[in-house]
Design a protein around this nucleic acid. Structure first.
Lengths: 206, 206
DNA sequence: GTCTATACATCGATAGAC
DNA sequence: GTCTATCGATGTATAGAC
């Protein structure tokens, strides 16, 4: 899993990450990666055999890093309100730091999402979660009367959708609503506040 | 705008729509479109000049049809609660009827979203809306004290995100949460209910 | 309008010398 | 390990006969 990489390999991975993030798997050109890495195509194939293997390695590394960063920022707590708020804040922050990864994942989803789900499941397992980290906590909170009854599955989808949608739709959001700049600290702070308020008003105990 | 199309052109458009929706602009092959339309590549270029023009025509038609269908299903009313519920229901229904169009729009967004915003703005203008149809109604309702104060821009983003996200993420949603089938009538009905409840609890008057 | 044949470009991958 | 040169497949677009 963590084989040592030569300097040349490190350089290639670094360049390939940038190119793949910017142009996607199909749009990226082996020639461009080779050029920017200061080598030629033949050497690229010598190290990584073919385009698909290079892409998978880059994609997996990026997704793993993102999830580890995110999961590491969410505290262990049984207070659902705190959990929700911290998750929303950490998630939006992580997306703002790595906005390119959204396109990366979208490309993958449109090809079936196999590689993404596989990688995500791996990280969850390593971090000790049996399935999506949220669902069980919410189910427990409902049973404990800590929040109003709500469908935990839909709630998870809503939380993620509310956070990630502005980044997915960034180009059209900014074109249709010109007063918004998605990656401005003003919008991000507003978004965190609005999402948390909306979610909590939907599940707060009577 | 509405030039008459010959039978051959109609046939090509129909086939091209299916192929583009399934494989995207880059993935689609002029050869495949020609084959399925029962003609050859040369004739394809004779009618539509090149791939880009054919694609733009198909894309614009699809997006226009979707928006017209959606806007036609949302009633004219000043009751924000009714407006919101009808919009959510109509939007989710429209997405369920045309799930492929989501990928279509996503591809476009990732290329900058120019063509989409342009087309959307066109439809809005034709239907008599100056900007995104929702924003003004919500601002008016806040002023009238019909709902609690909330940022109308964020509310619009939330409404759309809550509806469309399950369709965007369908492959990974179904892989990570196996009890869900996004396009099942059960999930769709649940989703409408949950989204409406969540949104209304966030803006209902005290 | 409709066809065959082909030009022309691009890209991933590999052979083979050093 | 690293290079040059090239193969083979595929794709868009067009020339030119009918």
């Amino acid at each position: 899993m963590t084989e040592k990489l030569s300097d040349a390999e490190q350089k290639i991975i670094s360049v390939a990450t940038r190119v793949f993030l910017q142009k996607g798997k199909d749009g990226a050109r082996m020639q461009e990666i080779a050029d920017q890495a200061g080598i030629n195509k033949a050497l690229l194939h010598y190290y990584f055999r073919n385009k698909d293997r290079l892409y998978r390695q880059v994609f997996r590394t990026q997704v793993r890093t993102f999830f580890q960063e995110l999961l590491g920022a969410v505290p262990e707590t049984d207070d659902v309100k705190v959990l929700l708020e911290r998750f929303v804040e950490s998630y939006i922050d992580a997306l703002a730091r790595h906005p390119e990864i959204v396109r990366f994942v979208l490309w993958e989803i449109q090809k079936g999402g196999e590689l993404f789900s596989e990688t995500a499941r791996e990280v969850f397992r390593e971090q000790g979660f049996s399935r999506f980290p949220f669902v069980e906590k919410i189910q427990a909170a409902i049973r404990a009367g800590q929040i109003r009854a709500a469908d935990p599955l839909h709630l998870v989808i809503s939380v993620i959708g509310l956070c990630v949608y502005p980044f997915i739709a960034q180009p059209i959001v900014e074109k249709m609503l010109p007063e918004i700049k998605v990656n401005s600290s003003k919008f991000l702070a507003q978004r965190k506040r609005e999402v948390c308020a909306l979610l909590w008003s939907g599940i707060a105990p009577e």
